[in-house]
Design a protein around this nucleic acid. Structure first.
Ligand SMILES: [Mn+2]
Ligand SMILES: [Mn+2]
Ligand SMILES: [Mn+2]
Ligand SMILES: [Mn+2]
Lengths: 221, 221
DNA sequence: CTTTATTTTTAGACAAGACTAAATCTATAA
DNA sequence: TTATAGATTTAGTCTTGTCTAAAAATAAAG
């Protein structure tokens, strides 16, 4: 079980996340898109990861993480989300500023560091974007049933518990509308023609596009 | 001023530290030794760093950091020592465990991260090994006159303020003798034949070889 | 069941960083 | 001042990770 390069680790994470969405084996082009690279480069990397038994790969049939690959992915996600939490909780970063930095920090190799950080943060269960943080055993806390805000009908009330897009631009958009984790909201109007919604939040009404509401995770209250 | 690779950054740090010791231009072989690599690899890298104007280089004449290279080195050292401080102060690492991890963390790119970390740690002036931490402008706090413990004569009293060797094995040796930063010591005997010294520390007498005492930095009291 | 269109893989190149072996420069000692 | 040891550079090769262009396999239409 030798060290992986940062590049290999980033691929593993990407495969994990695509796998979660589609369940079926991950295609070379999808992975290329996600990694912002070319299909031929992906094929090369896929062979390396397959040699290291982190993924299972049949030519032309896509790839899937092995158990070992899965454990590797969860460790990376754990580190990523712990660091994000650290940056927001301890160093006063905004939730829109931490992803890039965590993308680097997640590659630091030291089991003890991860576990001490976890302890220092008091074993947080969710990161600043509402995503669950795997524990030291790779177990992920399962959430109560949740919805995307665009699934709610008129007059339904809910609490924001996560975002499905951690890009700085989307998060700053939410900041501008004072929407954060824990915000109480209520759907006041649904405009059928474009599926946009008028939302009551902090005693103010804002209209959010379907593109926006589909990226906001909520729990009914 | 594009991004440097981790490898380039490690070379810059090594050149800085060799330069401090010897002042004169740094030789290819010395650098190869320090980097634990081959002279030919060093020549390759030296050319790259010279192209980037981080060092000045004349064939066969060795290399020296430019002003730009110097600033780069100081930023790295700042990050390295801040992270070491973080690991010891906040995550309960021993001073013998932090160097390796800081060697990775120093390469994280984010000015804001460094400065917020500095603030979070309350602008520490020295790292867990007693080495000065450059401030955001690259200024290093100058120390009062200090000595190596092997320079002290009989009956001289002093306080330990630093170590000249941050290797885990040496630091664990010091731990075993309960010698840490701030320890008050007194030279009780100097054995001329091998320059070893009997030291009073915590009301106990220990005999330290010249190899050991030459790596312990002290200030007279 | 062929013929396209799409996806995926191969072939060949390149840059970074490393290595070995060989060549070349510099310094030192006879 | 020349021979020689030591330091340094060059030449050529390797691996990782990337690319473009072209070939091959699969999927989708007609
Ligand atoms: Mn990453
Ligand atoms: Mn996150
Ligand atoms: Mn380093
Ligand atoms: Mn240190």
């Amino acid at each position: 079980m030798d060290q992986l390069t940062q590049s290999e680790e980033n691929y593993i994470k990407a495969i994990y996340s695509l796998q979660q969405k589609t369940s079926s084996p991950v295609g070379t082009n999808d992975l290329a898109d996600r990694m912002d690279t070319k299909a031929s480069s992906v094929t090369d990397m896929i062979k390396r990861l397959s040699d290291k038994k982190l993924i299972q790969y049949k030519k032309y049939k896509g790839c899937e993480l092995t158990d070992n690959g899965m454990r590797t992915a969860l460790k990376l996600i754990r580190k990523h989300r712990l660091w994000e939490t650290f940056l927001v909780e301890k160093l006063n970063f905004g939730w829109d500023e931490v992803h890039e930095i965590a993308e680097q920090l997640e590659h630091i190799q030291s089991l003890k560091l991860t576990d001490q950080l976890d302890k220092f943060l008091n074993y947080p269960k969710f990161d600043p974007h509402g995503d669950p943080i795997p524990d030291a055993e790779g177990e992920i806390q399962q959430r109560e049933q949740s919805f995307k805000l665009n699934e709610l009908a008129m007059d339904q009330s809910a609490v924001v518990i996560g975002v499905a897009d951690s890009s700085a631009s989307f998060l700053r958009f939410l900041d501008r509308h004072k929407i954060n984790l824990g915000s109480s909201i209520c759907v006041k109007e649904v405009y059928e023609f474009d599926d946009s919604r008028e939302i009551l939040i902090n005693d103010e009404l804002v209209t959010l596009s379907a593109a926006a509401t589909s990226k906001i995770t909520v729990q009914l209250v």
